[in-house]
Design a protein around this nucleic acid. Structure first.
Lengths: 169, 169
DNA sequence: CCCGCCATGTAACACGTTACATGATTTT
DNA sequence: AAAATCATGTAACGTGTTACATGGCGGG
């Protein structure tokens, strides 16, 4: 599960209810994609069962009993372990962005390393696309367009990475 | 299933075996993501059962009996219907690229419309990101980085779309 | 001779969605 | 008064992965 750790990571910022998390995720829909309630609640149950989050119920006055989840020490350890695990090559953009959004839990050095890792992967991908694009095989229109898109996207991402890495130093 | 139609679309270019499809998809891994064999073969079985593809077996001389799938008339109709169905708003980049790669099955007008649709969605997304980025709330580092990335990506995509749309006219 | 590629397939599992069920509070 | 938002949850289903099972052919 990849949302599991992302949700855990969001809880480092502040304790939240399932509904809070879903609302937050909703705004990241385009960037990362947001899981449905049918996914969020069971994920929180699983985290709780594993002792990575703790629960306290707000039953002050409002009826629906807000269930506020907080990350535990064990949770922080598990999250750190996840963040430290090198991303497997070929990870998706979505995964890159999930971890990036949790950059607050990384050291400066860790973040820089992470971005450099990504850089080398994108550079490799770019090289592959350039090879394909430059070879003068007869290519179908759709293929040509998609590859051209991919190349443009890779260039833009490399530019962003370079800019960001520079700002960080 | 979204790979179902994509695979069907790939068969408009030439008849292929499951292995061929997987090999082709592998090279699109970064761009689109490639399903495993455990997904490709059952998908072909389903397409066959629905009459969208036909099968003929190559049992000439080599042992493993290559199973070559071709798209049928019903398959072409189903594909066309899928391509004509407007993409629901908020579709992922992956879906955009899948359809883009099947541009060969679209009319010139259809392709232009498709790209313009995408353009308006990305533009909306860009506007949202710009609003968030410009608001001077205290934002966590990761959030800031991810949003900044998203904005750069959106700008790059808009530039590509404009360039491509111009070339197409 | 072993390794990697060609070639097909199945079963168990993981992850997430959709649809349903329930009900209070706030906004239009 | 109706609609949207807050708030939680479950069950069935869809889609895809991982791991397994099988086996021939070609090159180092």
């Amino acid at each position: 599960m990849s949302f599991k750790y992302f949700i855990l990571g969001l809880l480092t910022q502040r304790p939240m209810t399932g509904y809070d998390i879903k609302r937050l995720l909703q705004r990241l829909d385009w960037l990362i994609g947001s899981p449905s309630f049918g996914s969020v609640y069971p994920t929180l149950h699983a985290l709780l069962k594993d002792g990575l989050v703790s629960l306290n119920v707000d039953q002050n006055n409002d009826r629906p009993a807000r269930k506020v989840y907080s990350i535990t020490m064990a949770g922080r350890r598990a999250l750190q372990e996840w963040l430290d695990r090198p991303v497997e090559p070929g990870a998706s953009l979505k995964e890159f962005l999930m971890r990036l959004m949790l950059a607050g839990n990384l050291s400066h050095h860790g973040l820089v390393t992470y971005l450099q890792q990504r850089r080398s992967e994108v550079a490799a991908h770019r090289a592959t696309l350039e090879k394909v694009t430059n070879s003068k095989e007869k290519t179908a229109l759709g293929r040509k367009l998609a590859f051209d898109y991919g190349l443009a996207a890779a260039k833009a991402e490399l530019a962003w990475l370079d800019r960001t890495l520079e700002q960080l130093s």
